[in-house]
């Protein structure tokens, strides 16, 4: 059978991902994380922390909570349902660093944990930094003036 013909057959026989259900769940969970972020922000500002610093503390808190939930094996069970809801916010990034760090402990602190820590998050860092540099360059030389 030609690959094109078989590809059509495969597509027809593969059950589709439940797109609507996934979107609704992602919206709910993603919104919930944002809500937690807002609540933390309000709490931090109550303690006379400036808005700018409070935003940083929110990030740090969410990263810590995610790393903890990843470590005790709960995060992936939530993420299985939440999908993009947990992956898109900073929780997704924190999980993608914490998960390989745990997994590769058995290969040692250096060649295991440290080397493999960024196997998933690496591309985000590389292209995130590249995009930020490009944006900064354009902003500094062309827009700011």
């Amino acid at each position: 059978m030609e690959p094109e013909k078989y590809a059509k057959k495969v597509k027809a026989s593969a059950p589709a991902s439940p797109l609507l259900k996934n979107c609704v769940k992602a919206f709910f969970f993603g919104g919930l994380i944002c809500l937690i972020g807002e609540a933390l922000f309000t709490a931090f500002t109550e303690f006379n922390i400036s808005d700018r610093n409070a935003a940083a503390w929110v990030c740090i808190s969410l990263i810590m909570i995610t790393a903890l939930l990843t470590g005790i094996g709960v995060f992936d069970k939530i993420a299985k349902h939440a999908g993009a809801g947990t992956m898109v916010p900073i929780t997704g990034f924190a999980n993608s660093v914490a998960a390989p760090a745990i997994e590769y402990q058995t290969e040692g602190r250096v060649l295991g944990t440290a080397v493999k820590m960024f196997t998933i998050a690496g591309p985000v860092i590389v292209y995130g930094c590249s995009a930020a540099s490009l944006y900064g360059f354009v902003f500094y030389f062309f827009i700011q003036r």
Binding site: A14, P15, A16, S17, N22, T70, G71, G73, F75, D76, I78, A79, K80, A82, G83, T86, M87, G92, N95, S96, A98, A99, P100, I102, E103, Y104, I120
Partner: peptide, 17 residues
């Protein structure tokens, strides 16, 4: 999973196939 896919605790979703 470790060799072919993602670390166990990684929060991803699988396709129905």
């Amino acid at each position: 999973e470790k060799q072919f896919r993602f670390p166990l605790e990684y929060g991803g979703q699988r396709t129905p196939t």
